[in-house]
Design a protein around this nucleic acid. Structure first.
Lengths: 212, 212
DNA sequence: TAGATTGTTAATCGATTAACAATC
DNA sequence: TAGATTGTTAATCGATTAACAATC
């Protein structure tokens, strides 16, 4: 999975920004490995894979790393995203504060329900039949999908055909990525299930210990 | 990561339930491997690891699998969860439809803001100072954390000290699991970042191709 | 019996870490 | 120069797959 690398790149960047505010000019692979709980080898390997070079004795330049990581992560252009499906979850995501710090900007929402539409809002919400025009005119590449389960497959296919290249999918049914369109599935129920599995497993283990 | 196994167990279960409604009585490892896009060996290995046995010629009993998977995933008792932080995201999660089908029940919310409190709602929202009493009295083990970044660390520590064993964390700062408490971090900004990385990477690749 | 599928062992693969020569 | 840190190669580890003997 190349996914882990991207995740780490993003983590490196966050730490580097913090270090910069603390006055750091250079960092060593050891510093970053400590902060992330991974080996220094992996840090160096990641950097090498991304053509981020350091000096054999002087470590890596913080400024240079941040700048290059921003380019790699596409942070130098604004990251415009639309939200399709503006029910409770969708509209919560439209106002999610966690996006602000990451140059991610929700530019519009779309919903079939006229009561949720509001073309004049701070973040406008349009009817779904304007999706295609909007995506093509504004050259939108990434969408967050928060429609009810029934509509998810059909909506996903429409988004792909309109030229969307990346989808963050909150529908209960996980979707697979296609050649043109990368899909990240966020399955909240599954995450909660994992937690209960661990809680149960832990208690079972304790019970076995007590018996022994 | 044992995480992948749990994820697959949950996926197996979902498929098996569907197959059951279609009248299936038994399944072969081949059927499940096709549905999940993994090898049949892995299916058999997963089942062996969970003491789910089949017959050398007759495959696995669908009913038996579902039942045992439900026990493993803790689905036979109701999975009660509280939501801490009932802003837009938190209250959207309280009403998230995707939990219903998985026996996950949001039993209460907690918020410091009196305007959001509503002890008599369908899902009551209490002041945060009632957290400890509620968790201990109701023996709550799992919490969803959707508080603003400033409050996340402190709230997490409180939850742990009150006996919470699993936390689904929506705060921007990822938290590490401790011995007693398992933390799953949902970092929405990171997910969106991944998508842009792929979109960019794909376009870069195309550009390079064109130049060649 | 012959055929099919499990359960399990060995092989493969990819990701991470350890080690160390190159070099600042 | 001596010492420290990178960049890279070899070793390790874990997860997945392939293969096949056991057996229904």
């Amino acid at each position: 999975m190349e996914y882990d690398l991207i995740k780490r790149l993003s983590q490196y960047k966050k730490i580097l920004v913090k270090l910069k505010t603390m006055g750091f000019v250079k960092v060593f692979s050891d510093n970053l490995s400590d902060a992330l709980g991974i080996s220094a080898s992996l840090v160096r390997k990641d950097f090498a894979a991304c053509n981020l070079t350091g000096k054999r004795r002087g470590g890596y330049q913080v400024n240079e790393l941040i700048e290059k990581l921003n380019i790699l992560l596409g942070k130098n252009s604004e990251q415009r995203v639309i939200v399709v499906g503006c029910g409770k979850l969708g509209s919560a995501l439209m106002n999610y504060r966690g996006f602000d710090t990451e140059q991610i900007k929700i530019v519009a929402g779309f919903d079939t329900n006229p009561q949720r539409q509001n073309p004049d809002g701070a973040i406008p919400v349009f009817p779904v039949d304007q999706l295609e025009a909007y995506i093509r005119e504004q050259r939108i590449q990434v969408a967050i999908l928060a429609v009810p389960e029934e509509a998810s497959l059909q909506t996903m296919e429409r988004l792909e055909s309109y030229g969307i290249r990346g989808i963050l999918n909150f529908a209960q049914v996980p979707m697979r990525s296609s050649e043109n369109c990368n899909v990240e599935n966020v399955n909240l129920a599954l995450e909660v299930e994992k937690l209960f599995y661990f809680v149960n497993a832990q208690q079972t283990r304790l019970r076995i210990k007590e018996q022994a």
